[in-house]
Every structure is written in C-alpha cells, then in structure tokens.
Computed example of a mutant assay.
Amino acid sequence: MDIGFAIKVFTALFAIMNPIANIPVFLSLTSGASDAARRRIALTAILGVTVGCIISAVAGQAILHVFGLGIDDFRLAGGLLILLIALSMVHGSPSSQHASTPAENGDLADRNAEDMAVYPLTIPLLVGPGTITSMIILGHEAAVSGQAIAFGIGLGAFLLLLSAGLFAAPLIGHYLSAKATAITQRLMGMILAAIAMQMMLASLQHVFMSRS
C-alpha cells in the first residue's frame, strides 16, 4: 500500500470540499435549527457525500465509456475544471460550480432545514463537479495501480474529518474567524491548482507518448 496515494486522495478531497470554509455555510443554512436537527442534517450530508464519492470512483469510468470518452480525455477536461475552481478559491470568490444560483436559492428561506442537507449542502456544495471529477480520476488511478486500499484509507480519513467538522460546527464556529476562513480557502486553492496541473500534465504526457 502506498501511503502517499492515500495522502493524495485525502488532500484532494480536503482542498476541494474545504470543511473549514464550509462550516460557516453549514451554520448559516441551519440557523435556528435545534442541536438535534443539526446533527440529523450533518449525518444526512455525510451519508450523501460518502455515496456520491463511492459511486463516482467506482462507476465513473464506465459512465465515460458510455459516452465514448477515455480517462485521459476526462483527466484533461477535469483538470481544467478543477483549475478554474482553484483560481476562484485563490481570489477569494465562491466557485459557481460548487454553489447554487440565486434563482435556485430564491426559496431557501421557506424550506425546512432538513431539506437543505441534500440540496444545497451535499449537492452542489460538497459533492459538486470538482469532487466528482477528482473521484473519477483518483478512482481510476487506484484501480490501475492496485491502490484500492490506499484510496479507501484516504477517503475514509477525510470522511471522518468531515464528520467531526460538521458535528462540532457550532463549537468550532465560535472560534473560527472570517480571516482564518479566507486564509484556508486561498491555501486550499493553491493546493488544488497544483493537483489540477498534475492531472492535465499527466493527460498530455500520455497523449504525446502514445503518438510518438
């Protein structure tokens, strides 16, 4: 087992979902909800993230084949998408790929807090295009290199951290300043940009080698 690959999976998920930056969002969406309701919302979101990540990693490549796409085609396009998300994070602006639109958010005030666990908390805030792209690519790498265990460890470690962050969000929110959130967002954006460049370079390298 390559522990480095497990760290890569954990880092990619942490950078793109950024639990620290999303704690204020979670608290805002669940404003006025009881502690018990917040725990139910957190549990629903965690289950949704787990299912979304596993499905993307396991079935992602098969879905690509249905559309006649290879993993290198997707790695290049996905790397570009993740790079755009990373640049938004570096500049301190929310990514449109991982946020609902104003029109979609128009009725949030009238919705039950539990309904927000799936939308917009799980999709698209946590499991958006960037997360799905990362899972498909990393899932393929794990299958090809025989690193399924390392992939599972990295994913499991992140889900534990995400669970701890959401369940402890009310407590963490008292000590989490806007400045700390902004710094974390920019730092994760830089890491995510490096991961995106690695994806695109690997895809281009494979294309050039196949043609030489």
Rank of each mutant, 00 (worst) to 15 (best):
D2F: 06
F5P: 00
V9M: 01
F10C: 03
L13M: 14
F14R: 02
M17C: 12
I20W: 10
I23L: 11
V25C: 06
V25M: 13
F26N: 03
F26W: 06
S31E: 13
G32M: 11
A33H: 04
S34W: 13
A36F: 10
A37P: 01
A37F: 02
R38V: 02
R38Y: 05
R39C: 09
I41V: 14
T44H: 10
G48I: 04
V49H: 00
T50D: 05
C53R: 00
C53V: 06
I54W: 01
S56I: 01
A57D: 12
V58R: 09
A59E: 07
Q61S: 08
I63N: 03
H65N: 14
L69R: 09
L69I: 06
D72F: 08
F74A: 05
F74C: 03
G79S: 08
G79N: 08
L81Y: 03
L83C: 13
L84E: 02
I85T: 06
A86S: 14
V90F: 11
S93I: 14
S95K: 04
S96A: 15
S96E: 15
Q97L: 14
H98T: 00
A99G: 12
S100L: 14
N105Y: 08
G106Y: 04
D107M: 12
L108V: 11
R111Q: 15
N112L: 13
D115M: 13
M116S: 10
V118L: 14
Y119I: 10
Y119C: 06
P120F: 12
P120N: 13
P120E: 11
L121E: 03
T122M: 15
I123D: 00
G128V: 05
T131D: 00
I132C: 00
I132M: 09
S134G: 04
I136F: 06
L138M: 10
H140Y: 13
E141D: 13
A142H: 01
S145C: 09
A148M: 14
I149F: 12
A150W: 02
I153E: 02
L155E: 04
G156H: 05
L159C: 07
L160S: 06
L161T: 09
L161D: 04
L162F: 07
G165V: 08
G165L: 11
L166H: 01
L166M: 15
A168F: 09
A168P: 04
L171Y: 00
L171S: 10
H174D: 10
L176P: 02
A178F: 03
A180L: 14
A180V: 12
A182L: 13
I183V: 15
I183M: 12
Q185P: 03
R186G: 09
G189R: 07
I191E: 07
I191W: 03
I195R: 01
A196L: 09
L201H: 06
S203C: 04
F208H: 05
S210L: 12
S212W: 08
